[in-house]
Design a binder for these strands. Structure first.
Lengths: 292, 292
DNA sequence: CTCTCATGGTTGACTGAAGCAATGAGTTTA
DNA sequence: TAAACTCATTGCTTCAGTCAACCATGAGAG
């Protein structure tokens, strides 16, 4: 991590060096940025956003005012406070700055291989998500599948169960078979999204007679505790009723305790279980069902 | 990307703020770091590594010398140059600095959720790999499959072909079926690695009689041009011979031009082709074979 | 209504980081 | 051996940013 910090400090340094021909320091640029994006802003707000010293900010604003980039005026509500907004000249200065920065980044990105940009942006998003999880309630959504979801399902099952329970090839193939046999004409699949990215899934499979089967319920560790498991199961049962089923069954293993709680809450009851083994690991297969 | 830069500047700032009780500036810390890691270093080398002004560096070194952290001595080979190395006190100062930095990072990481650390480090590695690809020749390897590879195969096929050719659910299910039907007792799979990470694959499927089939040849865009496709196909044919096959066949589509070149180079010839359509997109299915 | 105190902004003085340029010691080359 | 060059040092300067004193305004108590 420290190696990365050293490295990235240098990257940022290189990008900023490219902007040295413009007459604004980094901090001044940030001020312009904030004011440009807010339209009109109290200086106090500006100060706290950029974590600047009041005196320093005052001087910067005085200079900007002198250069005709901004207009400062007293707040009508509280004459102690000042409001700041950009003049046309200020907006132009901001846009020049913005353009210079965009150019630098474009130049950097242009030197990258095909898929590099995407990987870069993915990784950056991941870092932000980890270090500074978006505060407010995360937006969740249960939706029908799209292209790409099936391979996502296989991949995440493989990765997560390998990590959490050590299940290997047999399990991956089992998942692949379910996905391969999935028939959109009579089966169904829902994907749970958190903030626009897949975070869980469940399959509904139409069995013979009046029975349906729930399969491959998964919720990403990072998305647990949001009630997605419950909603996925509910969606599945609702669909089963609409599909004329009288009963839904599912297979699971005793080690999947959090899934079990979801099944119980949805009305499933344990019908039978038997011990088996996979790759030398003891597992207890369970069969659950619910009457609709 | 700019949002990330702003964000990460703040992260680095926070980490450095935690070290403010120590009497060294960021640059001084970097100097200590370089000298500590190099053992003994010419000041010129130091200057170019850290990209410092000669005067500024001279002053820093003078101060360090005064504080008894380093020893400066003239180079025996060229008395204009100076050599710098740490005194025991200097090493101790460096270690204190190092410890403070480690502590800060540990504290930051401790506040993260379970899988966060891993995602963070993965993402950081990805960013470095993209922005500053390890120079020397990349190490490549063709190896038998491990746990997790099957789901990787499904996932990358789904993602890459969706991106490059717009193939969707049908193709994902086709791949899933191949993976589900894969029988390690008579079939085979090889994974190509670049720098220790999966970058390609190929399946060998034993067909009836004396025929084998090559399936799901894939090389990541970032790993193309390294000859991995050729090596995967060779591995597959070698195995087919060892498995007593007289002939290996494969299906492909005419739009996969780079794969075609690999097949031709390996001795495959086009047997037949027919037009079809998938999701409304025209495709030409081709059948190739090679006699062993 | 006015006095007091809190808040917000401004200004002057100051510090530390860092760059520039002149200087001098030492080295290489014509 | 003199000229050209390299390298470290030092004085001067700039710039970013902090601190503290000060002034204007607003809010609440008597």
């Amino acid at each position: 991590m420290r190696a990365f910090n050293r490295f990235y400090t240098r990257v940022i340094g290189v990008l900023q060096a490219g902007m040295h021909d413009l007459p604004y320091s980094l901090t001044e640029g940030r001020v312009l940025y904030e004011v440009a994006h807010a339209g009109s802003l109290e200086t106090g707000e500006l100060r706290s956003r950029l974590d600047l010293d009041a005196g320093y900010l005052s001087r910067i604003l005085t200079r900007f005012d002198g250069d005709g980039l901004i207009i400062r005026e007293r707040s009508a509500a509280d004459a102690r406070k000042h409001l700041v907004r950009l003049t046309p000249a200020g907006r132009e200065a901001f846009e020049a700055l913005d353009r210079a920065s965009t150019d630098d980044i474009t130049r950097l990105l242009a030197g990258l291989p095909e898929d590099g940009r995407e990987r870069l942006l993915d990784a950056m998003r991941a870092i932000r998500d980890v270090l500074d999880p978006p505060a407010g309630p995360r937006t969740t959504l249960i939706r029908p599948p799209r292209d790409g979801d099936l391979s996502w399902v296989v991949h995440r099952h493989g990765v997560l169960y390998a990590r959490e329970y050590g299940w290997g090839r047999d399990f991956e193939q089992l998942v692949a078979r379910v996905v391969a046999d999935f028939d959109p004409a009579c089966d169904a699949l829902w994907i749970a999204e958190v903030d626009g990215r897949p975070a869980g899934c469940v399959f509904y499979i139409r069995k013979d007679g009046t029975t349906g089967q729930l399969r491959l319920l998964l919720v990403e560790p990072s998305a647990r505790g949001l009630g997605l498991g419950r909603r996925l199961v509910e969606e599945c049962l609702r669909h089963a009723r609409a599909d004329g089923r009288e009963r839904v069954v599912l297979w699971t293993r005793d080690c999947l305790t959090s899934a079990r709680r979801v099944y119980e809450a949805a009305g499933f009851r344990l019908d039978s279980q038997e011990k088996g083994s996979e790759n030398g690991i003891e597992v207890t297969e369970q069969m659950w069902s619910v009457d609709l």
